[in-house]
Design a protein around this nucleic acid. Sequence first.
DNA 1: GAGTGGTCTAGACCACCAC
DNA 2: TGGTGGTCTAGACCACTCT
Lengths: 233, 233
Amino acid sequence: MQQQKKTSFQDVRDEVMRRIEARVWDQGALLPTEADLAEEFGCARATVNRALRELADRGILDRKRKSGTRVATLPVKQAKLEIATTRRLVEERNATYRYALVSRKIQAAPGWLSSQMNLPVDTRVLHMEVMHYADGQPFHFEDRWINIAAVPDSETADFSETPPGEWLLAAVPFSNAEVSFFASAADAKIADYMACATGTSLFQMERSTWFQEQPVTFARMSFHPGYRMRSRY
Amino acid sequence: MQQQKKTSFQDVRDEVMRRIEARVWDQGALLPTEADLAEEFGCARATVNRALRELADRGILDRKRKSGTRVATLPVKQAKLEIATTRRLVEERNATYRYALVSRKIQAAPGWLSSQMNLPVDTRVLHMEVMHYADGQPFHFEDRWINIAAVPDSETADFSETPPGEWLLAAVPFSNAEVSFFASAADAKIADYMACATGTSLFQMERSTWFQEQPVTFARMSFHPGYRMRSRY
DNA sequence: GAGTGGTCTAGACCACCAC
DNA sequence: TGGTGGTCTAGACCACTCT
């Protein structure tokens, strides 16, 4: 039996993390320089650099040229939320996914939408209401608005089988989005679709999407009563 | 005027991203090998590697040994949520933060908590209820449970001035957490503290925290009516 | 077996910034 | 102005996995 031949950046990263947790280096403490650590661990400086960079990306370390590397004082933690299609959300729960197009209409953008998406007034938009089901139970109701100018094909696309979210993901694969989560009471229409009482507290998500600075779509999703969005960090 | 001397990994990353957006490489398409790209861009293979690795970390590319690098077909997008102290949340809104300790009691862990945090039954826990205000308006109500065995100092700590969340961040700086977000109706007690009607739909967050496999704390936070949690990706 | 990404090395130069 | 992290290079070997 002999030791692993080389020191990997994971080894360095894990050992540094261990020392931080063990308070060998307390919050705000200055770490040795990359060169010193490289010597201690018997590896190249680039290896130490990659290890420390990864911890800095996670917010565990603060790094500054000349000043050196310090343990972050108020670690800013980040929870990562996976934003997937509804189909995937449902199937991850081992439930059967079903989708229904409720309504579809081309119209001029209402004022609140123009302002929300930063669209010129009276832009032509495609408005759809759709429902997603998990094992036949209401999963969420989706109010979807698409800027036709940004995605001309949407005007003639068939959304009776393919949910607009999935269609857009294929049509505009790499977009930027702004998302917000909140709670609100079910109005009569949504209560009807969700098969719950009016006024029931529902988890909701709104998302605005851009592709190369151009507004593409806005969606409001109202989840079934009791829905939880989970994450680890 | 002359060109920048060297090709940076950012240059490579941005150019690859540009080609993906321009559909030069469509979804699922196989990219050239690292060696080929290095030659094309006139840089070292390590530079290409770093650029592609960064895009793979973002979920834009799928990489496999032997198979090569492909444009991800269903880009799994990740929204990053910053989990900060309530003080910071409030001050980011340019509001004045105020905190109040409502109740503090040491007791045996109730069954639901034992099961939630994976604690032995009847473990001694510190239970606190606290309120956070923004410009004097209720911001959120916090139901906080601390495993005294994991953080012995908590038993004698003074929480009349320092919120438990901030105290714990200093006491147990690098922990793992599981968080869930949902909507529920305000009960009588919370409605009272939040100065809203019973039954009002509130955005809520629950967080369980561990440090080195040991359960540390559980908190349920009920935000004021209308609260939105935002993120970009 | 062979092709591809994953990683490490040793050295070098640069950019930033506290002193 | 010097010290520190940021990055690039050229080469090498390894690990995974497809065929």
